[in-house]
């Protein structure tokens, strides 16, 4: 698989582990109370698994398997895909960790902005690669 896919998929596995760990702590606490402060992990649990794990894995797989072009660069605008990788991770970390670290709500908003920009960058990369066999 291409380097960017490997990076995205490895990052998604890290989020899977971290998100499952936070989720396990929350579920355990729901059954056998440990500390009410654990509920502070909820935003990170949700964002790490939805965007960090699932969305990023899908982006990594799409970068890998979508049709390539017959001429270089075979995967089109790779810079946009790398930008999406940087933005999605910045966004997930900001949204997930801002409440935990006591940052201003503006940090969460900035994180959502980064996630939206990641979506835009990735769509811009992938759009021309969604094509019929033998064209382009």
């Amino acid at each position: 698989m291409p380097r960017l896919s490997a990076w995205m998929i490895r990052a998604s596995l890290i989020y899977l582990f971290t998100g499952f760990t936070f989720g396990a702590l929350l579920l355990y606490h729901k059954g056998i109370p440990i500390s009410a402060r654990l509920w502070g992990l909820l935003p990170a649990h949700i964002d790490f698994l939805l965007f960090g794990w699932i969305v990023q894995l899908v982006m990594g797989m799409a970068f890998w398997i979508l049709p390539r072009f017959s001429r270089e660069p075979r995967r089109g605008n790779v810079g946009l895909a790398w930008l999406a990788f940087a933005l999605i991770n910045a966004g997930v970390l900001l949204v997930g960790l801002a409440p935990l670290l006591g940052l201003s709500p503006a940090a969460s908003l900035l994180g959502r902005f980064a996630q939206a920009a990641a979506g835009l960058a990735f769509a811009g990369h992938a759009w021309p690669r969604v094509k019929a066999v033998g064209t382009g």
Partner: peptide
């Protein structure tokens, strides 16, 4: 729930 958490983790 505690056991479920450990199994899924």
């Amino acid at each position: 729930l505690a056991i479920s958490a450990l199994l899924q983790w």
